[in-house]
């Protein structure tokens, strides 16, 4: 319980910092802290696999991409304050929508009888070495590939569509040219350019 409160405070604080930070890179660092705290929260819920995946996928890959783009696009120094300030107008409706959505969640949670998984035997962190505890890798894998196979495959398909889309949108559309041919082409272009300029003195 102590761990829950400490982690929650860190999470809320870092989430606020993510939104309010003046520099984009600070936002990324705050979000990184937030993701790490979320992983810690998963561990206290004995969802070991989910915690590790949270770090590998979100912190390691997605957030890294954010940082990459921010560092390259703006050198990270321009602050968010540039440009027209549209936030105040959007703030109140956005807050309302989120409040309603969260209200539904709380309402649903208080009414529905949630199928609580059988309490894991042993400590909350999962007994060391045993493979079949709730939230462990093998448990997660079994659920993923038997009960939830269809959603899993559909998700894989959607991700595949995204990958193909990226290649179509951003891929190099010029036909493939070998290195040597390309070098020859460049040489020819240079020679023509020199001739146009009146030749080398």
């Amino acid at each position: 319980m102590i761990a829950f409160w400490v982690i929650s405070i860190v999470m809320v604080a870092s989430a606020v910092a993510t939104v309010t930070a003046k520099k984009p890179v600070y936002s990324v660092v705050a979000l990184l802290l937030n993701f790490a705290a979320l992983a810690a929260l998963y561990i206290t819920l004995s969802a070991e696999f989910l915690a590790v995946m949270q770090i590998i996928v979100y912190s390691g890959a997605i957030l890294m991409l954010f940082l990459f783009v921010i560092a390259l696009l703006s050198s990270g120094v321009s602050s968010f304050n540039v440009g027209p300030d549209r936030m105040p107008k959007a703030a109140i409706p956005a807050a309302l929508v989120i409040a309603i959505a969260l209200g539904f969640v709380v309402y649903g949670l208080s009414n529905a009888s949630i199928a609580t998984p059988a309490a894991p035997s042993g400590s909350a962190l999962g007994p060391v070495g045993s493979a079949d505890v709730f939230g462990s890798v093998s448990d997660f894998g079994k659920a993923l590939f038997t009960t939830h196979l269809l959603p899993f495959e559909i998700t894989a398909l959607i991700l595949m569509v995204a990958v193909v889309g990226v290649v179509l949108l951003a891929g190099d559309k010029t036909p493939f040219v070998g290195t040597r041919e390309r070098a020859r082409e460049v040489r020819r272009e240079m020679r023509e350019a020199i001739l146009r300029e009146g030749g080398v003195q």
Binding site: V52, M53, G129, A131, V137
Partner: peptide, 10 residues
């Protein structure tokens, strides 16, 4: 930990 090698990767 059970997730051993995954933890290392993370």
């Amino acid at each position: 930990v059970n997730a051993g090698i995954l933890f290392v990767m993370a």
